[in-house]
């Protein structure tokens, strides 16, 4: 399915998603551009998406990476819904799930247990995020 680079490296497909009512999209746009400049294929969900809409987009676009951006504090409700949805479509195992935004320490463990691979909080560098994706994107 995945496109090939001339150097033989697979092009990583990412969905950068804004879930819920949160309109803070600066981080989502910055990381989407950084991913694109790093050579990834990037799809942006647009704002105010319900968890199910994100799941549908991830499945239909057959993405390797799902980056969920959320700064409203609703991560504890919305992220589990997305992960459940991915599992329902059998897409969870093939998708690297990342969260970007403000997630207090106490909530991080729960998200990791659910299957979020990494959480990028305020101050994260674009390069570290790109490196993480390169190292951890699922093999196809």
């Amino acid at each position: 399915m995945s496109a090939e680079h001339t150097d033989g490296q697979r092009t990583i497909r990412c969905l950068v998603a804004k879930v819920g009512l949160d309109g803070h999209d600066r981080g989502a746009h910055v990381i989407a551009r950084a991913f694109r400049d790093a050579g990834f294929e990037v799809i942006y969900s647009g704002l105010h998406q319900a968890p199910d809409q994100i799941v549908q987009a991830a499945v239909q676009e057959d993405v390797d990476v799902l980056g969920i951006s959320i700064l409203s504090g609703a991560h504890d409700t919305l992220v589990p819904k997305i992960i459940d949805g991915l599992k329902e479509y059998d897409a969870f195992e093939d998708t690297l799930v990342l969260v970007g935004g403000i997630v207090p320490d106490d909530d991080r463990e729960e998200l990791y247990e659910l299957g979020v691979s990494e959480i990028f909080g305020p101050g994260s560098s674009m390069q570290d995020t790109i490196d993480f994706v390169r190292e951890n994107a699922p093999e196809r």
Binding site: H48, G73, A74, D76, L78
Partner: peptide, 8 residues
Amino acid sequence: MSEGEVGK
């Protein structure tokens, strides 16, 4: 759509 956001 309000689920998870009320009073947050």
